[in-house]
């Protein structure tokens, strides 16, 4: 598919999502959710291989995006939000977007996809509690749950449409994007659940006694180094996966390139 067609289809899905989720009062009080265009692109690549009508493809992709947006907005619910109204409406916005995913798929009568996405939501919330509690026996279990939070919707969507060959590639892409975002948060002194987890597993003596921001420069650098190792591994996997899959659209390969160049290994 030509880049122009991808852009057109992506715009159309974005428009559909925005139209469906618009609620005047809601958006007066909460920040407009971010619609991740990389995810739309992945969904479009999957749908290109599926033998379904354009309308069905659009609704399927839009519903998967709504699920992700709903899940993400519920992660923002906290006592730190600006006002009680904002917190209350963040709860309801997530519920509203979840309802819209169900409605969209009910209208096109795709009961199997409703089930696939419900199952993904279920697993993601289990991963979320594991990560939130910083549970897990070792860093690998913790990282697997952390990775699962951001990748399960796309992974299960690929499986649903028998496009599993994209799974390793898309998962590494999304994981890398998330790792980079967490690194940025940590460097800017904002709360990072990933770095909390890394502290627990790699600096256990500091786990319960020292907040991340109070760690010595040496310890902070050490945690960044650990995260960078994950980033480097992820970049390597991503490079291998994008070389392995033939026929990937240029628009996606460019995104892989851009993302991979976003962060260089920190000096030790």
């Amino acid at each position: 598919m030509a880049r122009r067609i991808y852009d057109q289809k992506a715009d159309s899905i974005k428009e559909l999502i925005q139209k469906k989720m618009y609620h005047h009062f809601l958006f007066e009080h909460i920040e407009s959710p971010i619609i991740d265009e990389d995810r739309i692109l992945m969904l479009l690549i999957v749908m290109e291989e599926a033998d379904v009508s354009d309308k069905k493809a659009e609704s399927s992709a839009a519903s998967a995006m709504l699920v992700q947006i709903a899940l993400d907005i519920h992660d923002q619910v906290s006592k730190e939000q600006k006002s009680l109204t904002e917190r209350q409406l963040s709860v309801l916005a997530g519920d509203f977007f979840s309802g819209l995913y169900y409605l969209l798929l009910a209208e096109i009568e795709d009961i199997q996809l409703i089930r696939t996405l419900a199952n993904a939501i279920k697993k993601i919330n289990e991963y979320k509690t594991t990560v939130y509690q910083l549970a897990g026996q070792d860093p690998d279990t913790f990282m697997a749950s952390f990775k699962g939070i951001g990748t399960t919707v796309i992974k299960d969507f690929c499986r649903h449409f028998q496009a599993e060959r994209y799974n390793p590639l898309f998962m590494e892409f999304l994981f890398l994007k998330k790792l980079l975002a967490e690194m940025d948060k940590f460097q800017e002194g904002r709360f990072s659940i990933l770095f909390e987890g890394l502290k627990k597993f790699y600096l256990p003596q500091m786990y319960s006694t020292t907040p991340l921001s109070h760690l010595s420069r040496r310890d902070q650098h050490f945690l960044k180094e650990v995260c960078t190792n994950y980033i480097d591994q992820c970049k390597k996997n991503l490079k291998e996966e994008s070389a392995r899959i033939s026929g990937l659209p240029d628009i996606f390969l460019e995104r892989v390139e851009q993302l991979s160049n976003q962060y260089k290994h920190i000096a030790t």
Binding site: V91, I121, E126
Partner: peptide, 20 residues
């Protein structure tokens, strides 16, 4: 609140699974 959000979402997903 966070645990309540995750639990609520988990239960809603279970309800849709039964519906399907």
């Amino acid at each position: 609140d966070r645990v309540a959000m995750y639990t609520g979402d988990y239960i809603l997903a279970r309800s849709l699974e039964y519906m399907t």
